[in-house]
Amino acid sequence: MQASNIKKIGVLLRPSTPELKSSYFKLEKIFKNHGIDVYLDSISGAMIDIMGTEFDALCMHVDALVTLGGDGTLISAVRRSFKYDIPVLGVYAGSLGFLADVNLDELDEFVENMVRGKSRVDERSVLEVRIVSENDERKMYAFNDMVLTRPSVSNMIHIETLVDGKAFNTYYGDGVIVATPTGSTAYNVSAGGPVLFPLSKVFVLTPICPHSLTQRPVVLPGEFSIEMKTPEPRALVIIDGQDMHELDKNQSVHIKLATRTAKLIHREEFNYFDVLKQKLRWGE
């Protein structure tokens, strides 16, 4: 869908922030002034004492989602709405994010440009993560990253890794991050991984505090698939730093790029490198 065709939006607010009520009313007025109907998510509505619409029903009814908060709010919205294949716009309440890059004070001008066709929709790669056991399979999606790590700080973890079914590496340390290009500037970069251009069709494996200094981050093409397993009795799979799942030694984790992409609405002149320099303070 072109952003200029959006006639109905669903709004999600940063959780546990009832002080966003006045900002929501401002956002609602801006969109309505440009002929766009506004619907509020029921959890966000309960937070600010307004009747809202249950999330799945909301996604089926609207053309796009708008988050008011920060990158965490936007990431959660992308993951939860991924199966509905609708674009998401991040409006930041606070400081500029890597993903939420439109300020509430700029929103009126942005929406005016959007309805005139002067905005763009970027497609971002998403990880499909499956936890597989002998009789069961659980599928999840990660917008930023998936982390396989130890359940206790007192122990290291062995992680056997296969790429396209062939033995690749055995990591020994605190765990491994598998990050999308979008997520490369999150936990991945803190662990010494590379910054990837966000529209690339690749992903990166970055060991966390590896026992051997020869273990380095590896960037893989998007058509590859990864399998990870561990002889440890318990491990943790963490999705986007938001959802946690236990993994036992009889289960394995299978990771690949999802066939669909997440769609983010941006200003027409949005420049990723400008955001990167500002957020990481490059050149100062």
Rank of each mutant, 00 (worst) to 15 (best):
M60Y: 14
M146K: 04
V66C: 02
Y92E: 01
L27F: 07
L220P: 11
W282E: 03
V189N: 09
P231E: 00
D56V: 10
K83E: 07
V195S: 06
I43Q: 10
F224W: 06
K29E: 14
K21S: 14
G173N: 06
K32A: 13
K277T: 08
V218H: 05
K249G: 02
L96Q: 02
G45I: 08
D85V: 08
Y187L: 11
E109F: 08
E128T: 01
I48L: 09
E269V: 02
I255K: 01
V153A: 12
N103G: 12
S81V: 10
S190L: 13
P18N: 01
T17N: 04
G70H: 02
L65I: 08
L12P: 03
L127Y: 03
V189W: 08
C59T: 04
T185Q: 07
L127I: 01
A77G: 10
V218I: 15
G165W: 06
K118L: 13
P221G: 08
E109K: 07
N155D: 10
L74G: 06
L107Y: 03
F203H: 07
L196G: 02
K263R: 15
S23R: 15
E227W: 01
E137I: 05
R116V: 02
N113M: 14
A93P: 01
F25D: 11
H245A: 12
G10W: 10
A179D: 07
G117M: 04
V275A: 10
R120L: 05
P18T: 03
L162T: 14
G52R: 09
L68S: 09
F270G: 00
K26N: 08
H266L: 13
G45N: 10
P198A: 12
L236N: 02
A142W: 01
D136Y: 05
R150A: 08
S119M: 01
R150D: 00
A191H: 12
V237D: 03
D37Y: 00
I255W: 00
S42H: 14
V115R: 15
F203G: 03
H61I: 06
G175K: 02
N144W: 12
T214S: 14
